[in-house]
Nucleic acid binder design. Structure first.
Lengths: 119, 119
DNA sequence: GAACAACCTGGAGCGCACTCCAGGTCAAGC
DNA sequence: GCTTGACCTGGAGTGCGCTCCAGGTTGTTC
């Protein structure tokens, strides 16, 4: 379709749960690329941008740093030749997340142990 | 036993994996209490302190803030009457950690989805 | 045409959890 | 008695990820 819905910053913020300031910050830092503009210079976000912000927030929530995300974005911008590296990056991060899950489970065990003790 | 092994700051740091500066910082902030001193004024940590630092780090690693940990410590210092509140605090935090696990699992699913896409 | 709202930019400020530093004490070894 | 090293204190500095601000433009509404 040619007629793609475009979102204003306020709408984008509403849709993603990310503040307008943070959206601009991400763009400045290279974590969101090629945001289009209306004739008056205002940003217009696409549905793809909405999806990407979702991914971005998800990866951030698992401890991926701004730096790593920027790198991942740059790879994406460079085209399909970087797919192996992107896959590697995600695979590595996957291991980090699994490690986090393991640590949280340890923490749960410790909390349960403490709770047991308080009974 | 009366003859309890006491650890110097350097030994404590070695044992817990927490830097000497951070150990002092925790003490200043009320997260580690009643650290004994040698005659020359140097700190001497007990095995109990080692255990407590382990718990503290575990709770910190799950996102419990310094503020919450300080509160938990203060409750501990106030004696057994605060046990219900401590139990409540841990129970609440347990739910937070479970929520984190759920989010990490969502992230893993997303990463796997992306990886699938790159294949 | 005045007021208002939504947005723009560059840059400053903030909160958290450390981390580092300057200047000093004290005990042990040479 | 001088150096060295481990420690002390109070306070300043750091890095990350936002968050806020001042001053300006544009478009709409009364």
């Amino acid at each position: 379709m040619v007629t793609e819905t475009k979102l204003s910053p306020a709408e984008m913020s509403e849709r993603t749960g990310v503040s307008i300031d943070t959206l601009r910050y991400y763009e400045r830092e290279g974590l969101v690329q090629n945001v289009t503009r209306a004739e008056n210079g205002h940003r217009r976000y696409s549905e793809n941008d909405v999806l990407w912000i979702g991914v971005l927030r998800c990866l951030r929530a698992t401890g991926m740093t701004m730096e790593q995300l920027r790198h991942y974005c740059e790879l994406g911008a460079q085209g399909v030749t970087t797919i192996p590296e992107r896959r590697q990056l995600l695979t590595d991060h996957r291991a980090v997340v699994e490690q986090q899950v393991a640590e949280l489970n340890e923490a749960l065990a410790l909390i349960d142990h403490k709770l047991e003790y308080y009974r």
